[in-house]
Design a protein around this nucleic acid. Structure first.
Lengths: 246, 246
DNA sequence: TCAAAAGTGTTCCAGTTACACCCATGA
DNA sequence: TCATGGGTGTAACTGGAACACTTTTGA
């Protein structure tokens, strides 16, 4: 029996092909925007007004424009919705189930972004009235496949958190070690030993004492730290700017 | 000064919007197909016949069809090009620079796949004549942004390799520890200590002696091992089937 | 002076690294 | 008997985990 040849040779990657006549598809970019208010990790959502998901929170996103790169689109969306430019963002995954959106076929490229909540609240912009921060622990359902997306984003964040000091993108300039530990516990989802946590973080040499202390707390005030910029530049320079990986 | 409201409320995720009239875009799925022939890690490529990349190797891919899920498309492409169904595959990243493809705008969702080369060679299919396996060490240029994609795939593979025994997807049923070590060294890119490597792998309890030995080698024949199916089922069941993460 | 949370060191264990010689086979 | 690569154990080191008391502030 003579072997059949594997597939034809014609291919988008090898030969000229009629791209114009081929199926084109709507592509959206959705962002899982994380913020941390010294208590809980939250996600910025907008209320969905579309059957069958009416009333459910959905992620922040938009359709990709013709002449727009993916990272550009993510940045545009973040700027539009938070008022902040150049947020830390990273592509997560692309979701493309045929029936994932009730309006028709839309595949979505997803990103996660990290926002300092103080910036969000104090830029002179008024958030759109039907958007809100929801604590991760409070999220039960979301529109479309957005709960799945949020969970994948959280997994990604968890992993990155242990590899790189991206937590700094969620914190104000001055922060305390207990606040940082709480952030970690929130994201990782389990309590950490205080002494071991401090030892670990301080050994990284990525933060330094600011000299300041907490004020007006009904207990011993914590020392405030800030990021060691030298170390940051030397070892994590990609955290200094918005990384365009594309 | 009264705060300006952030963005309008209308949005693909919140309100009904004219999807039909919005920009639609060609979407392709490209696969970085890895194979290992007991010597080197290789990638399956096809020769590009399109200016300005004529003659360069490119990845295996195709345009996404209207009613096709992303993972489905990846599977279809792999089946078409390798003759094998249900290969191990995982989504890597989506690349969407506006000018990445000379035929027009095409964003590409990329996957990596792992093939046992013996399967590829012995399924009665004749590979298409202009496709070939290229050793990673030999790859210098590729068409489009495929070199970038391949490098990202390799990074992903490197990380996964240390976390899960996905290397089994590259090896024949019976394999020796020196072969496995060589595979690791090939992917990680540096030599490993023989004793430590064996200790580590054997302690995972994921392989067991098959009782067989290498034949016709001009030196002491190595013991052949195979995967411990019980352990595999218990701890890595996702390796038993093609994982549809979407 | 009390309540509340901040800050601080040491010991133990497990996993990783470094390292050198004998063994089985075919030629 | 030689050349070639296969197979084996131990000691030192490193990083993580467990764990309890003292300090500082505001009320």
């Amino acid at each position: 029996m003579k072997g059949k040849e594997i597939s034809s040779v014609e291919n988008i990657n090898s030969h000229i092909e009629e791209i114009e006549n081929h199926a084109k598809i709507a592509v959206s970019v959705d962002c899982v925007i994380f913020g941390y208010d010294m208590e809980e990790l939250k996600v910025l959502t907008i209320e969905c007004n579309m059957d069958p998901y009416k009333g459910h929170p959905s992620l922040i996103g938009d359709l990709l424009d013709e002449g727009e790169d993916l990272d550009q689109a993510a940045n545009r969306i973040l700027k539009e919705r938070t008022g902040i430019d150049n947020l830390y963002l990273e592509q997560i995954k692309t979701f493309g189930k045929v029936d994932r959106h009730p309006l028709g076929r839309v595949i979505t490229v997803t990103y996660f972004a990290l926002v300092k909540k103080a910036d969000y609240n104090s830029n002179g912009m008024r958030p759109s009235p039907n958007s809100q921060w929801i604590a991760l622990s409070q999220i039960e359902e979301m529109a479309f496949d957005h709960l799945t997306i949020t969970n994948v984003a959280l997994d990604t964040l968890r992993k990155k958190l242990l590899e790189y000091p991206i937590w700094m993108k969620l914190l104000p300039i001055d922060f305390s070690l207990p606040e940082l530990q709480n952030l970690f516990e929130n994201i990782i989802g389990k309590p950490l030993d205080k002494r071991n946590f401090r030892k670990k973080i301080l050994s990284l040499d990525i933060i330094q004492e600011s000299g300041k202390k907490q004020k007006d707390v009904p207990h011993r005030p914590a020392n405030l730290y800030r990021v060691n910029q030298k170390k940051l530049k030397k070892e994590y320079s990609f955290l200094l700017k918005n990384p365009f990986h594309n």
